[in-house]
């Protein structure tokens, strides 16, 4: 994953609250493999209507905001469904940062997993940014993750982000490799846990037990249960 440090880019206003992930990418598009690109699905029904034939009146499709990499919206952005397609749609459209007063939790971690910055500002700053972007279409915003500052015209404000998510973005960490580096801690956890919670492994259902041939391991545990992760 590419680290996220600073971004200076055209910002696009989306003066709506409660943009849930169903709106960010309607469910019917989720069947598509990622390789085919999700950019065209971003806010599809809001932009083009359900039949896809409408003319978008949104800033996203306004020439003056073309090339925007930052989106500014109202509260509760990305609530609802856990679909990561919502983040794919933003990224494939070219968005690297969303600024809003609050994010859905799952959406925010999906963003970070994909290198997109979810920046939280207070309601007053969000309204000021929206007003500025509407007054000066095509204006750029500077976002600095290390210091958590936003600069927009002659206005500056801070944003908040979970320290855990921030570190991940700044380093562009690949979680799987980090996790694998804790293999030893995992084995000792498993050992302790097997003694503390022997009931936690799924018991084999009765029907499958009866099917087990004589000589099969009497342990109800799946053979791979003992394998190290």
């Amino acid at each position: 994953m590419t680290p996220f440090t600073t971004l200076q880019a055209i910002a696009c206003p989306l003066p709506l609250a409660n943009i849930d992930t169903d709106q960010l990418v309607p469910a019917r598009f989720l069947k598509q493999p990622r390789a085919e690109g999700y950019g065209g699905f971003l806010l599809h029904d809001l932009r083009f209507g359900a039949d896809g034939k409408g003319a978008s009146a949104m800033a996203l499709d306004d020439k003056r905001y073309q090339g925007a990499s930052i989106l500014v919206a109202r509260r509760n952005f990305g609530g609802g469904s856990s679909r990561e397609g919502a983040v794919y749609a933003l990224l494939d459209f070219g968005i690297r940062c969303v600024i809003t007063p609050s994010f859905g939790d799952i959406f925010a971690s999906n963003c970070v997993m994909n290198g997109l910055l979810p920046a939280c500002v207070n309601e007053i700053d969000a309204e000021a940014l929206l007003a500025h972007l509407q007054e000066f279409p095509g204006a750029a915003i500077l976002v600095d993750l290390e210091t958590q500052w936003i600069v927009c015209g002659n206005k500056t404000c801070t944003f908040s982000i979970d320290s855990f998510l921030k570190t991940k973005l700044l380093n562009g960490w690949d979680d799987v490799d980090v996790t694998k580096s804790f293999a030893k801690a995992m084995s000792s956890f498993l050992l302790k846990d097997a003694a503390a919670r022997p009931w936690a492994r799924p018991a084999l259902p009765a029907a499958r037990r009866q099917q087990a041939r004589p000589g099969d391991s009497p342990s109800p545990d799946h053979p791979s249960a003992a394998r190290e992760t």
């Binding site: 469904s81 679909r83 959406f107 971690s109 979680d175 694998k180 992760t229």
Partner: peptide, 30 residues
């Protein structure tokens, strides 16, 4: 799936995750 919270009814710590996290759990069980 975000409604994984359902299983909390049993006194479990159950939560929904995104696709990249699903991939991570598949590869590490953590």
């Amino acid at each position: 799936d975000s409604h994984t919270s359902t299983h909390g009814a049993f006194g479990a710590f159950a939560f929904g995750i995104g696709a990249s996290e699903v991939a991570h759990v598949l590869m590490t069980q953590a």
